[in-house]
Nucleic acid binder design. Structure first.
Lengths: 216, 216
DNA sequence: ACCTGAACACCGTTCAAGT
DNA sequence: ACCTGAACACCGTTCAAGT
């Protein structure tokens, strides 16, 4: 049986979990599929097209909340699901960032979000700005979250790819800690704070701020 | 005169403007400095250490607002300056994202922001969460902003690195536009909307939301 | 203290050719 | 319609050696 486009995406996603974006090469991907690297170029125009397809695939599993909810709770739920989708694969947020794939899942989900906001009374511009404001926050948050090495008991992550916050805190020179005491505290506090709670904090502030400009 | 650490950072920044992060290679950087690539490893442990130094250098020009302002206006001004600093070099936001450099400029500016928020009555955790929430929004926004090709009259950007939103809009198949009408409108509206106004919109919503949880 | 030459182990992509 | 072999033009990094 020959390799299909979807087989390539599946294998690429698996490889992402193994070695991160930096470990995802066309040659390794081909080897995993037991074909030669140039064969991939029959299915995808180039590596970027593959990454676009992967970004879109990340959203495939997103479950949208029920339609009956008020827009603010609904948007909060969608943002939470978006973060979950990005986190479902190693470096998922980095793969998604920068790509602007006009592919099916991205279009489908954008469409539903805009529809919801418009139904709640927002005009086109307000709906679009709201969508992207929330998206930027989630994306920025999740990129940093995934860049940090999970504390001790991770199950993959062999390489020193991630940033260990504890280690960063300890490597601050005495001079730096004396000169920038608040920054020194920040690193330590950040390392011990709960990611989910931090995410909720930011998202709730944002949605609170959005409520003030949404009609009704 | 031999090459100094700062010369390398300066040359790397110039190279960034020329060819973006993808065009920044140790070999090209060395050539620009008229030395051989391995020499760079005497000054920096590896490419990542250089990128960290570049991320820190991006913040060197940041001008912090006067201390007398109320915290909300002050924070808005700092966020605006942060975006400006990221945009001062091609792909600046991408360079900054993911790195967590405990270097002087990053520490200095974090320290001042936390100090300001604490002086306004926030406890440590609230101050840290506020700082990072705003940072995530600005970073996410600016990454996407820099990923988009500036409309027509750009002065650099030879390669097809950026995403042309107009082109994306036109490449949507009739089937896609029919199935996801709101998404189709979104792409067009996004291409014509003003980036500065979009940035202010998101930032103001965020700061509005933060006001509700800050004491005083 | 700073730099080079040579080498290692890779990359993404093209293209003619095969089935 | 899908895949291969061979090749091109690169990468980041190490390391012994030079000044």
């Amino acid at each position: 049986m020959r390799v299909q486009r979807q087989d390539i995406i599946d294998a690429a996603m698996a490889l992402l979990d193994d070695g991160g974006v930096d470990g995802l090469t066309m040659r390794r991907l081909a080897a995993a599929l037991r074909i030669q690297a140039p064969s991939l170029y029959w299915h995808f125009a180039g590596k970027q097209a593959l990454l676009d397809a992967m970004a879109d695939a990340l959203l495939a599993e997103m479950v949208l909340p029920e339609e009956e909810m008020p827009w603010d709770g609904w948007l909060r739920a969608v943002a939470t699901e978006f973060r979950r989708a990005l986190k479902s694969r190693r470096d998922g947020a980095r793969v998604f960032a920068g790509t602007f794939p006009a592919l099916d899942n991205v279009l489908r989900i954008s469409d539903r979000i805009i529809a919801k906001l418009r139904a709640a009374g927002a005009d086109e511009r307000l709906a679009v700005r709201t969508l992207f404001t929330v998206q930027y926050f989630v994306l920025g948050f999740t990129i940093e979250e995934q860049a940090a090495t999970p504390p001790p008991g991770g199950h993959g992550h062999e390489e020193g790819e991630g940033v260990d916050l504890m280690q960063v805190a300890q490597r601050l020179t005495a001079e730096q800690a004396a000169r920038y005491p608040n920054a020194a505290i920040t690193v330590k506090l950040l390392a011990s704070d709960d990611d989910d709670a931090r995410f909720r904090f930011g998202l709730d502030r944002l949605i609170d701020g959005l409520k003030a400009v949404m009609p009704s």
